[in-house]
Computed example of a mutant assay.
Amino acid sequence: MNKKQHKASAYWKENVKYLFILLSIWFLVSYGAGILFKDVLDNIQIGGFKLGFWFAQQGSIYIFVILIFVYVRLMNKLDKKYGYDT
């Protein structure tokens, strides 16, 4: 394997790691907070709505959008690290 292939392989491996971490966070927020921990979270209210309901309806979408921006920032850093930022 030449240097260019090794660099591309390392880049892809780190990219997949970021994707796995970010999608795991989104899964935990959407499935965990919206379904599994709904009853516990419903004891807390935000704007008159129970927190479990809020996460199921809107919270997971907000978290997903935030994670998109986090992913863009991470990928910009990764591009610079591996020299793909041209």
Rank of each mutant, 00 (worst) to 15 (best):
W54C: 04
V40A: 14
H6Q: 14
N76R: 15
W26R: 08
G52V: 06
D42C: 12
I44N: 13
I61G: 01
L41T: 10
M1E: 03
I25V: 14
S60M: 08
A56H: 13
N76Q: 13
L22F: 05
Y18L: 09
D39Y: 08
I61D: 08
V65R: 05
Y62V: 14
N43I: 10
A33S: 12
A8I: 01
S9Q: 03
L51T: 13
Y31T: 03
F20H: 04
K77E: 06
Q45F: 14
V70T: 04
M1Q: 02
D39S: 12
I63S: 11
Y31P: 02
F53S: 06
L51V: 08
K13S: 06
L67K: 05
D85H: 12
F64G: 12
L19A: 11
K80W: 02
A8F: 00
S60A: 14
K81R: 12
F69D: 01
Y62P: 00
L67Y: 01
Y11A: 01
I21H: 05
I35S: 10
I35N: 11
K50S: 10
N15H: 13
F69L: 08
S24H: 01
D85I: 00
K3S: 14
N15T: 07
N2K: 02
Y18M: 11
A10W: 03
K17Y: 06
M75H: 11
K3C: 00
T86A: 05
G59N: 10
T86M: 01
F20D: 03
N76G: 08
F64H: 11
L19W: 09
L36M: 07
K80Y: 01
L19P: 00
V72D: 02
S30V: 05
I68P: 01
Y31C: 05
I21N: 06
V72W: 01
N15V: 00
Y84C: 02
G52K: 09
K50Y: 07
G32H: 10
N15K: 09
G83P: 02
Y71D: 00
I61L: 13
I44T: 15
M1L: 03
D42A: 11
S30H: 14
V40T: 15
K7H: 03
Q57I: 06
F37C: 07
K81N: 03
L28E: 01
G52L: 05
Y71H: 08
Y11N: 04
S9P: 00
K4R: 11
I21R: 04
W12Q: 02
E14Q: 10
Q57V: 12
I61Q: 08
V40F: 13
F69A: 09
L28Q: 02
N15D: 10
I44R: 10
L23T: 13
L19F: 11
F69T: 02
L22M: 13
W12H: 02
W12D: 01
K7R: 13
Y82F: 15
Q57S: 13
I35L: 08
F64Q: 08
G32E: 09
V65A: 08
V29R: 05
M75G: 00
L41I: 09
K50V: 09
V40S: 12
L78S: 02
N2G: 14
G59K: 12
